[in-house]
Design a protein around this nucleic acid. Sequence first.
DNA 1: AATGAATGAGGGTTCATTCAT
DNA 2: GATGAATGAACCCTCATTCAT
Lengths: 230, 230, 230, 230
Amino acid sequence: MSLTKFIGAKPDEGHAKRERRKENRPAELLDAALDLFVEKGFAATRAEEVAARAGVSKGTLFLYFPSKEELFKAVVRENISGRFKEWEQEFHAFEGTTIEMVRYCMRVWWERIGATRASGITKLIVSEARNFPDIAAFYQQEVIRPGTELVRGILQRGVDRGEFRPLDMEYAVFGIIAPMIFLIMMKHSLGVCMPQDYALDPERYLASQLELLLCGLQLRPGEGPGGTAP
Amino acid sequence: MSLTKFIGAKPDEGHAKRERRKENRPAELLDAALDLFVEKGFAATRAEEVAARAGVSKGTLFLYFPSKEELFKAVVRENISGRFKEWEQEFHAFEGTTIEMVRYCMRVWWERIGATRASGITKLIVSEARNFPDIAAFYQQEVIRPGTELVRGILQRGVDRGEFRPLDMEYAVFGIIAPMIFLIMMKHSLGVCMPQDYALDPERYLASQLELLLCGLQLRPGEGPGGTAP
Amino acid sequence: MSLTKFIGAKPDEGHAKRERRKENRPAELLDAALDLFVEKGFAATRAEEVAARAGVSKGTLFLYFPSKEELFKAVVRENISGRFKEWEQEFHAFEGTTIEMVRYCMRVWWERIGATRASGITKLIVSEARNFPDIAAFYQQEVIRPGTELVRGILQRGVDRGEFRPLDMEYAVFGIIAPMIFLIMMKHSLGVCMPQDYALDPERYLASQLELLLCGLQLRPGEGPGGTAP
Amino acid sequence: MSLTKFIGAKPDEGHAKRERRKENRPAELLDAALDLFVEKGFAATRAEEVAARAGVSKGTLFLYFPSKEELFKAVVRENISGRFKEWEQEFHAFEGTTIEMVRYCMRVWWERIGATRASGITKLIVSEARNFPDIAAFYQQEVIRPGTELVRGILQRGVDRGEFRPLDMEYAVFGIIAPMIFLIMMKHSLGVCMPQDYALDPERYLASQLELLLCGLQLRPGEGPGGTAP
DNA sequence: AATGAATGAGGGTTCATTCAT
DNA sequence: GATGAATGAACCCTCATTCAT
């Protein structure tokens, strides 16, 4: 799978003038808005374009969202997964080695977040944080913090079980998080403009980073648990 | 000359108080524009505000830059150095171990780029790439490519000298680059909105990432050069 | 039948609670529209709000009135009575002094028109005349003209019977009409915003104006019928 | 002088594209806005139309007034005379009879307010009071109150000097004010739509109302000062 | 060169009106 | 008949850009 953009408006299937399917208008609008906000940023995205991509008129957008800014906030709220508890349980029940766990963690993240349109939210928030400080704070609280806690728990398990060497727990988590965020940012910004042969292959990228990371984490035979830690 | 700027931005000269220097109008405008583009993005930055921050009138801005878009491109061009050849020579002359080289490289990057306003360029381009594909392509060509080549050269040196284990050269470079980009993005977006006690301490962050990375790179005694490489 | 409505509005029937009476939709809509048009003016009144106050949906409004403008005209038409002939007969049959007649006339106007929601029509037309010239002309023809004729008839009776001094008949009528219109305008505009202790007490206001007027109209003993007339 | 409307856009005298006379732009805009607000009301007046009538473009309007609402408030503020102190002195120094004073007062009012475009403000405020309660309160404070005080002073003088009979001072003032307001309302609303031969002649109207009023105010020989007062 | 008043296309938002259900 | 989702013209306001001074 390559990093080219996969955005495309769904084709008009001969829509009659007034279609009348309120049920999931908001979802369709949020969907269209996510794409466009990720692609162009908040300011450069026109409300009318969002509406058009959702297959409705400009006025309809404002039937569901009182303003462009509220639309933006709704897009973020809607796409921020609060699935951390679920994942925490999943990891609690995990029975293999912690190394396997880290591999599993990254693969799962890629499948459920990184490879999906949900990853656009991260790009969006990073790009717009300064213009929407409350959104940024919300994201920090709801995603960054629980996310790092989750990762920290995994690393701690590795250390506790003697699989990993002692670590600066507070910051070691970024050894896992940074490559993921970097991948997202590449995918949604520079990656889109790269010539084909320079595009990142996400699978290979993740594999390489994982290898590097795991080598860095592991306790080697002959090293005491006080090894190279800071 | 040192290893500065291999991530692609030019350091500022420490924010000297803006004097009324007629001969330097374009530089002052670019300076002001960099700040504002980084802070608010291209679309949300108003030309008048740039002019005001540079201490000139709106009209003057357009005297030097034919349009806001050209101003943006000039900001990017101005802050992207093409001095990679120079650095490559310096790298060739480096005499310590490759591990020292990596440490040196990251410290110097932080001092000259990461910690300065110049780092904003990276944030800017990542955020706006989709709206300025040609800028993104230019950046890819002028910065990303030579930058990764430079880093790759360092890693290759480590492998060649038997200091590092065999690596997937194409992607291992991101083990160095990703943590730096991540730090920049945090610093310029989410970091601004974080509560004090959750803010990243860059020195400690870089130290921890470096430790992890170097452990991951090094060849251990008893491991043959064919070790854990893919 | 009494002297009601010579200023041109129909009294309401005391605001009976709006029941869900299907057969009466138009009346309820006109009722709601009157309130809102008086309160906010034509342009600032939203069709949906009228419908909501009448307890129906937006679409229903347009089932009964083809446009907001037609609704407005209907509100005016509905509230303008053309029963001046009837009243003229009553006036012919009146047997007291003309002074009593004037007092009676004003009291009755206040009770049936001035004090009720019907007075809003006058405020409405005065405020919107320039935007609805045909409505204004209609009102002039149907209300102002017959109304002033009616009043003129009363004054003429006073003069003919030697109760009043000679008057500039054409304009003296405004001695009666102006204070009434003024009261309505105060009641429906500035009066609403006045602090309690500056609010007009309508009864006392009318009494004082009546006193002044009657003194001004009456022929004094010792004055010949050619007195102070112009 | 008749009550027909005298509004007309000043003819284009071949204006070059950018005229550049900041000095009195605000005044010209307020001027145009007054006309249009009086004619059509606040809501129905388009900002662009105001600008066009002032001979500038839409954007220029917002260079001087941050919003249509602020323009409205500025129109009111600008046209509300704070000349009451001046007038009070003028009346203090008046040496004739109070009857002459009342005549003078009305004539002066007509010349300086009633006959001028300033009278439109009254129409405007009465029409829009409900939509701009703070403007209405301001008008009440700055105009209505001092205006009635001024008139009350005149009436009190008449009573004190034995020229007028005892009066309900609080409300007698409306004997003077109501006819003036009525005239303004007619002039700016219904009057505009009246057929020529029904138009009010303001001079004659005022003369007739004055006559009526003065007869009503005066103390007659043989009447004690306790006469017909309430 | 420098200014800042002026422009006008563009975008967010409202709301009268329509029409499928 | 009644509904209310959908429409799109219209309006307020912004701001990049121009140009007379």
